[in-house]
Design a protein around this nucleic acid. Structure first.
Length: 796
DNA sequence: TGTCATACTTAGCAATGTGCAT
DNA sequence: ATGCACATTGCTAAGTATGACA
């Protein structure tokens, strides 16, 4: 690791790291002496071309080697060869490296085990050695320690209304300038020469996944292509021969890009190191910030590269070209007394400088698709984000003490004579009980048509969907944030909504009333706006807004569900893994409440299908076993019992095929031979898979007639297998569309999770990943008995 | 009273990393 | 050791909240 700090533009950062207090860190295995004392000098700006191997000097005889091919095609073939060669070399290197690492580790472990006594002795002897030398850590680790050392929740708060007093930052990093590749697109079969900018745009389309979420769906593909082509044509200029998208052929560019990906994959270890170093440099230059004298991590310091706009759902602007953003378009924010960050693009300068301590952002620019503002801000683990996060959860906790009052308020108003008031109350009920978002107005020409509570329309509700008498059921179906489908049938007459004076029937009545006499496309709550709703909420509790209900309900639900789990009799005898599974189950209930979904990929779908097939096989096998048992018990015709076919021969054949393929690969000289070898390899692997399947299909059989007890044993074995597998399958199927992460990151008070772990001796890293532990550093010190309740909310 | 601008939170997807079974 | 499934992270889109202003 290179430790030269001089390339960091933040002057005080260097001093800061050096002065960082030594923080206790987890014990680490003793380090082996550094093996890299001298390093070769590295170029100051490693260019992308450094990753591509030098061309081998064989140009002269290439045309002889490939008779009848154009130079372009020959070049392509040669390149492919090179890529393959480098991939092979890299694989070899990786292997060796791994081996070496393992060896080292073993030695280290041996050392460690054999020398504990000695070490102790040394330590007692060391008396007057002066100040303790800091552990040899790299820059990233030292920065991490410096950040960890600052406990913002114990520190002074900046002046009222201000986010900071001083702020020094390293500016935004910009993507490298575009380097044209010269590969041509075809139009109506003819080559078209493009400028760099035009070629870059062509890349965007060429690189799109034809089966992805934008082009894979005919409806969105149409929007996407239309938008792209309009922007592309504008780039080409007036009177350009390219007129119709269907005549455009980007396939040459597509394969070039594919090739580049392979080149990138086939880099050597030293190149990988260089890339890492370059990335680290950017990270050190832009990734940290000094706020009021302490180091903070920056969240998004890389400027978004140009590309196509990937709007979700049926966003009317998807496919439009997102332009490259230049430093001139960016505003930077930092304190007056500090030097401005250096603009990293030569010949360019920041658009504007601000010194506004009342905001958190470090950088700000406008995006060209929707004209929306984008910000560079500190990372989730920073004090800014930590403070507002804790504030958010404390506010939600305060709702614990106010929720009864608020529910009384809307229950009263559900019966109000005035329609506006009734709509307000009904909306509050929906936000509280169904955890919907508030739902602001949207312009459907500019954005996808998605809704929340206030923007619900008559067409989103189906009364009495199952057509039963006296039904109070309503099907609620609409696209919410990110065009995620919300589809739930609410039975307003059910206990869930009527118990405890829940007033479900009244809510139903109100909805029916709000919807009658309206067009499908009319708003249900035509008198209501988010700000009016929030104003009313503020009158009931200071700082209350609609979204607090989601946080509140998520945290309360998690806490209640966990409490339920912990009440179970054998709870204390459960293993850590079982406890974590229970935690995840509680997490899942919250995720379902908040409608946090994910789409199931094709691969996941296939995996599920294969489990189902296996399960079916097991069930069939169990039936066969039962028949066998009957036959044996009643001393029937034993020749009816199916026998296991020998697997030895099959295995022989597979091994031979694999061996043969390997040999072919090694001996292959010409392209044809290589292709044949690859094919043989694929076939051998298929054979191996078939063998596995075949083995599985006769796993229940014996090579000779089994005894009664043997069969009986296998039946119980199979019963267990079937149970486990169908449980597993059901679980996977039920959960495949639920996303647990979002509620963990944004909704459930982390202190409830931390307390749960402490009560149950579950290591926190089984529940929170590294980044989550950093993000929730402020929540780690709570007591095992901590409860999400009103009093907690009074903290700040 | 509604609209706009601003600033910040919440969100899913794709790429990447990790750990486990074979 | 390898390949796979699952978990985590990076990215950036899509929301909410709120105050200024017409």
């Amino acid at each position: 690791m290179d430790d030269s700090d001089d390339d960091i533009p933040i002057a005080s950062l260097t001093a800061k790291i050096a002065a960082a207090p030594v923080v206790k860190s987890e014990p680490k295995p003793p380090k082996s002496p550094s093996s890299t004392p001298a390093k070769p000098p590295t170029p100051s700006s490693p260019s992308a071309s450094a990753a591509i191997p030098k061309k081998i000097k064989k140009e002269a005889n290439l045309t002889d080697k490939y008779p009848g091919l154009t130079p372009d095609e020959i070049a392509y073939k040669e390149k492919l060869k090179e890529i393959k060669r480098f991939a092979k070399i890299e694989k070899q290197q990786k292997k060796e490296k791994k081996k070496a690492k393992k060896e080292k580790k073993r030695q280290r472990d041996d050392d460690f085990e054999s020398k504990p006594q000695k070490e102790k002795k040394v330590r007692t002897v060391k008396v007057d050695m002066g100040p303790k030398k800091a552990k040899a850590t790299d820059k990233t680790q030292r920065l991490a320690q410096a950040m960890k050392a600052f406990l913002w929740w114990n520190a002074e708060t900046p002046p009222e209304g201000q986010q900071w007093s001083t702020m020094e930052q390293g500016g935004i990093a910009f993507p490298e300038e575009y380097v044209p590749h010269g590969v041509k697109m075809l139009y109506d079969g003819k080559e078209i020469t493009l400028t760099g900018e035009q070629e870059e745009a062509a890349n965007f389309m060429a690189g799109m996944d034809k089966n992805g979420m934008h082009l894979g769906n005919p409806k969105t593909a149409k929007i996407f292509i239309n938008n792209f082509f309009t922007d592309f044509q504008a780039l080409l200029g007036k009177g350009h021969p390219v007129k119709t998208f269907s005549k455009c052929d980007f396939s040459r560019i597509a394969s070039h890009l594919e090739e580049q990906k392979m080149v990138k994959k086939a880099i050597t270890d030293s190149e990988r190191k260089m890339n890492k170093k370059a990335k680290d440099e950017i990270n050190f230059r832009h990734g940290y910030c000094i706020v009021d004298g302490h180091v903070e991590k920056v969240g998004n310091f890389n400027m978004e590269p140009p590309g196509t706009f990937r709007g979700r759902g049926e966003h009317p602007k998807m496919g439009k070209i997102k332009q490259r953003v230049l430093p001139e378009q960016v505003f930077m924010n930092f304190s007056v007394e500090n030097a401005p960050p250096i603009c990293p693009v030569p010949g360019h300068a920041w658009g504007e400088i601000r010194h506004d301590p009342c905001v958190q952002w470090l950088g700000n620019w406008k995006e060209n698709i929707n004209g929306q503002d984008k910000y560079m801000q500190l990372a989730a683990m920073s004090s800014f984000k930590g403070k507002s996060d804790r504030f958010k959860y404390n506010k939600a906790a305060r709702l614990c003490g106010n929720i009864e009052k608020i529910r009384r308020d809307y229950k009263k108003n559900l019966l109000a004579k005035e329609k506006g008031l009734r709509q307000l109350a009904t909306a509050m009920w929906v936000i509280d009980r169904l955890a919907l978002r508030v739902g602001g107005e949207k312009d459907t020409d500019e954005e996808a048509d998605t809704v929340g509570c206030c923007s619900l329309r008559v067409e989103h509700m189906t009364f009495n969907p199952s057509n039963e008498d006296d039904s109070l059921e309503v099907e609620l179906e609409f696209l919410g944030k990110d065009s995620m489908l919300f589809k739930q049938t609410i039975d307003f007459g059910s206990e869930l909504y009527t118990n405890n004076n829940g007033m479900g029937e009244q809510v139903y009545k109100n909805f029916k009333n709000f919807c009658t006499g309206k067009k499908k496309t009319d708003d249900i709550f035509e008198t209501l706006t988010p700000s009016a709703l929030n104003d009313h909420l503020k009158s009931l509790m200071t700082g209350l807004s609609a979204k607090v209900f989601r946080t509140y309900n998520a945290s309360v639900t998690l806490q209640d569900e966990l409490a339920k789990k912990e009440k179970v009799e054998n709870w204390n005898s459960l293993t850590v893994t079982q406890k974590v599974t229970n935690y995840n189950d509680a997490n899942r209930i919250v995720a379902i409440l908040c409608n946090h979904q994910r789409t199931v990929s094709k691969a996941q779908e296939n995996a599920l299908e294969s489990i189902q097939t296996k399960l079916n096989t097991l069930i069939e096998q169990k039936k066969v076993l039962k028949k066998m048992l009957k036959l044996i018990a009643k001393a029937g015709d034993l020749s009816m019992i199916p026998m296991k076919k020998s697997e030895a021969e099959m295995k022989k054949a597979v091994d031979a095929a694999l061996e043969n393929a390997k040999k072919m690969k090694e001996e292959a000289k010409t392209d044809e031979e290589k292709i044949a070898a690859t094919k043989a390899d694929a076939e051998a692997k298929q054979l191996r898979k078939d063998m596995g399947d075949s083995k599985f299909s006769q796993a229940h059989l014996w090579e000779s007639v089994p005894t009664e007890s043997q069969v009986a044993n296998k039946i119980s074995l199979w019963t267990g297998k079937i149970d486990r597998m169908s449980f597993d399958l059901k679980n996977k199927d039920d959960n495949k569309e639920v996303s647990l992460g979002t509620s963990k990151i944004n909704y459930m008070d982390p202190r409830a999770s931390v307390a749960f772990c402490k009560r149950n001796e579950v290591p926190i890293d089984r529940v929170f990943s590294r980044t989550l532990r950093d993000k929730f550093n402020w929540a780690m010190s709570v007591e095992p008995e901590w409860q999400f309740c009103y009093e907690i909310g009074l903290e700040d």
